[in-house]
Amino acid sequence: MKPAEVYKLLIDRFGEDLILAYVETRNPYIKINNGYVQAICTFLRYNPSTKFAFLSSISGVDYPQRNEIDIVYHLFSPFLNTLCVLKTSTPRDLPELESLESVWKVANWFEREIYDLLGVRFTGHSNLKRILLPDDWEGHPLRKDYKEKNSYHDMETMRPDPLKVLREKNEKSGKSQ
């Protein structure tokens, strides 16, 4: 079963309000409504004709121009030997999505990582807190407009350019002589 057929199956089951588009490129993906991620994934996982048993990854992509964050789900079915790519977007100012933890346990950590690095909140998540960065970190680094702070606790985050330091030192010593 090819991704196009998966799309047809989804359209038959959920209709065009939930399954928004099928983008045909060399690596096609299916765009879905952001409110029904859980239902669609549950269907794909347990339907005997698809059996997408593995959640391969969840990634988040920041698009400041259209003020949205895209969340991309890669599902893998060894039964069909097919990769299914689901895409959904959520507004950048208040990003919120359903958690997939009840469908795949592994989604727990993937979603925590996206919450940590992009600041997307997942409703129904059992333990939504930072996973990679310290708990008191400010900001979400994978957003395109993230700016690094000058210091973290009492540690400087910048190192002076060694060539510049050397040049200044040489100039100083040259003057004193």
Binding site: E148, M155, E156, R159
Partner: peptide
């Protein structure tokens, strides 16, 4: 000095700072 990861947001640029 941070080496390859000098431009990273989460890496300490040299342990001589600590």
């Amino acid at each position: 000095c941070g080496g390859l990861f000098q431009r990273s947001y989460s890496v300490l640029k040299g342990i001589d700072k600590v």
